[in-house]
Design a protein around this nucleic acid. Sequence first.
DNA 1: TGACTGAATAATGAATTCATAATTACGTTT
DNA 2: AAACGTAATTATGAATTCATTATTCAGTCA
Lengths: 223, 223
Amino acid sequence: MNLTQSIKRPTLHEELVERLRDLVVEDALKPGEKVPEKDLCASFGVSRTPLREALKVLASEGLVELQANRGARVTEVTRQELENTFPLIAVLEQLAGEQACTHMDDDAIARIAQRHDDMIAAYKARDRQAYFQANQDIHNALIEGAQNDVLEAHHRMLAVRVRRARFMVNLSDERWSQAIAEHEQMMEKLHARDAEGLGALMKQHMLNKFTAHMKAFGADDAA
Amino acid sequence: MNLTQSIKRPTLHEELVERLRDLVVEDALKPGEKVPEKDLCASFGVSRTPLREALKVLASEGLVELQANRGARVTEVTRQELENTFPLIAVLEQLAGEQACTHMDDDAIARIAQRHDDMIAAYKARDRQAYFQANQDIHNALIEGAQNDVLEAHHRMLAVRVRRARFMVNLSDERWSQAIAEHEQMMEKLHARDAEGLGALMKQHMLNKFTAHMKAFGADDAA
DNA sequence: TGACTGAATAATGAATTCATAATTACGTTT
DNA sequence: AAACGTAATTATGAATTCATTATTCAGTCA
């Protein structure tokens, strides 16, 4: 009896890594804010040991900064960091697009097409919430479609760092329609399994998002 | 009195992350090997707490795998992982090359040129040791020259994973001379500050290294 | 008043202890 | 002898304790 479905019982520290990461991404823990171990332990109902282990991991991901004997604080999202991170994500998406074209099967592509249609519908309905969700699903599916665990892991790490700067709300109508057009092109390339083409489009798509968002960022926060 | 030169006294766990990472990279801890906490604590003369913190960080870097209640073991270097990692490093180096061209000052370029000459000399003397060192210095300097901390951090993580597969010793005369030629071209582009050009060369340089090394890897280990 | 000193307090780094899961060793049964 | 089951041992996950470093706050003196 081969029970491939093994029971997953995450350890406390893994759980805490997830929970804490969410707190940072969801902005419950604000950039620059001190992260007192005692309080967190109390709110999570765990001892300091697993919590501190989790903080070490988060620090290696760049979400918090540890100062010896001074504890952890949430890293600030600076303009510099965004300028560093976006081009990086862009080339990872480019690579993901290329590899997705060669590695995805027809079913997987069909599922993305479905999600793409959802996104278009959300756009027409001006439903930002649904749009963002579908958009993120599509990007995640393409990354996953590359079937490159290492790429996926690093992409996730970088995406988290950017997602913290939630300037997404500032999506202008102009940028929105442009993004939709870019996604249409991407779908064409994906169906044609044009690796180079999809990669180039995904890279440019990300760089366009970058410039659009840096305007917003620069406007209300010139950090 | 502003003593900008603060005294750095790394915490125990940071120290341990370094030491353990070295052990893995230097192959003192072999892939697949169990990593008993007790033994490591004894050899390092520390308690389990900081050691376990370090293991968590190493796990997030992908150097060890943690199984709940079963401890840590060094991750295997599989062909699949190398096939996943090399293209990733390639695009990172491409981006680094582009950004280095725009961000490095003349002095920094001159220092790389110096190191490049060292490398050529090592090549002519068939001094593999010196060659590898100079070669690595050059690549690190180019990454650093991009002045992109995020890029640098991720590149370092990926490079570590690859460096564990020490097939470098299998460098053939043919590949060696080809690598030298590629480096010559890279220096030209760097001096000309041709961002696109240098980026493309660095990417291709890494992919060439990849194919050359996968032959060696496939020969003696078809994992 | 304001800056400096030093004690009191709080927070962190690391060791130790405790509880539990996994592994090993042993004995029984067939 | 092989396989199973159970007890003893070991290793790990997490809590607790201890030691040290920061921080706060009161008091002093210019």
